[in-house]
């Protein structure tokens, strides 16, 4: 492996739920700026893999290394501070917060003026200082808030006029697709070095999916390193530099989109797991 492939390095990652091994000895490498998609039938363990990489679940074995640093079992909040942002398969916007506030929360780790970085004994007073700064609001705090709001607006304008007219609406009042957009906006506000997207277009219609694909394509062009879980294979094939296929917790194929698409093991996995209720998840075109 060359040096730049070790941007993210997963080794032997395993997670068992009772008798079921949801993620089984998974290895994964991601280079900086790469776009890697993870596909696989329902229950393959994709989301569990994301959970393990983002600190939402603890592995039973294996390691995750990010930019040369062992991040296995670090808490989600630490990982956020390191620049890892994710979205959730089933959508987890802050329902009672406005669109703007959702995105600003995404930028939480970048607010420095309200959280002075003090050395050890003083840092215990950090929460007190944070309350005081929130109440007093010296110019540095006001300026930072202003700057973040402007950035949030810029991020939201990536979605055209989908979200801009609804800045102050609580997100529970938004359409499903808009809530997913908010979630991606929130992830971008973190200023991520690594972005993990779990089925960002689930439940979207064709136009919305196309829009989302264009947006993700833009993100890729901007040089962002992206891990994508997606069942819509057209999108996967067009966007990805590389595709990893999982089945029953293990990686069964790993390669360029064109290679993976014709891999017999992949076709077998998909046919073996065909599900009537998830048509878009059932069969890659090559298998048809």
């Amino acid at each position: 492996m060359s040096a730049n492939t070790s941007f993210l390095e997963v080794r032997g990652l395993t997670r068992r739920f009772g008798g079921l091994t949801a993620v089984n000895n998974v290895d994964l490498d991601l280079a900086e700026g790469e776009f890697l998609s993870i596909i696989g039938p329902n229950g393959a363990g994709k989301t569990t893999l994301f959970n393990l990489m983002t600190g939402h679940d603890d592995p039973d074995g294996g390691t995750v290394t990010f930019m040369g640093r062992d991040i296995t079992r670090l808490s989600p909040e630490r990982l956020a501070a390191l620049g890892i942002a994710r979205t959730f398969q089933h959508g987890r916007v802050f329902a009672n917060l406005s669109v703007m506030d959702n995105v600003l929360v995404g930028a939480h780790v970048r607010f420095k003026a309200v959280r002075p970085a003090w050395p050890f004994p003083l840092n215990l007073l950090g929460p007190v200082a944070e309350v005081a700064l929130a109440l007093i609001r010296p110019p540095s705090v006001v300026a930072e808030e202003q700057r973040m709001r402007e950035e949030a607006l810029k991020i939201l304008s990536r979605f055209g006029d989908r979200l801009l007219p609804r800045l102050d609406n609580p997100t529970y009042s938004l359409s499903y697709a808009n809530r997913r957009r908010v979630e991606i906006g929130r992830a971008l506000a973190l200023g991520p070095k690594l972005l993990l997207l779990d089925e960002p277009t689930a439940g979207m219609n064709q136009t919305e999916t196309a829009e989302m694909q264009a947006l993700i394509g833009d993100l890729k062009k901007s040089g962002l390193t992206i891990l994508l879980i997606e069942h819509k294979l057209d999108m996967v094939m067009q966007l990805s530099d590389r595709v990893v296929v999982m089945d029953n917790g293990t990686v069964i194929a790993n390669g360029k989109p064109a290679e993976v698409r014709n891999d017999p093991a992949v076709i077998e996995a998909y046919l073996g797991h065909r599900r009537a209720d998830r048509p878009e998840a059932s069969v890659p075109e090559a298998a048809q």
Binding site: T54, G55, H56, S75, P76, E77, L79, A80, A81, A85, R86, F88, R92, V93, F94, A95, N96, L97, D101, N102, L104, V105, G106, H108, V109, F111, V114, E130, V131, A134, L135, R137, E145, R186, L190
Partner: peptide, 23 residues
């Protein structure tokens, strides 16, 4: 202030809040 939205975010979805760095 930023604390208002931070606290409410935590209430609405603590898992998502942690993902965005809220201890």
């Amino acid at each position: 202030s930023h604390l208002g939205r931070t606290l409410r975010a935590m209430r609405d979805d603590d898992i998502a809040a942690r993902s965005y760095g809220i201890g």
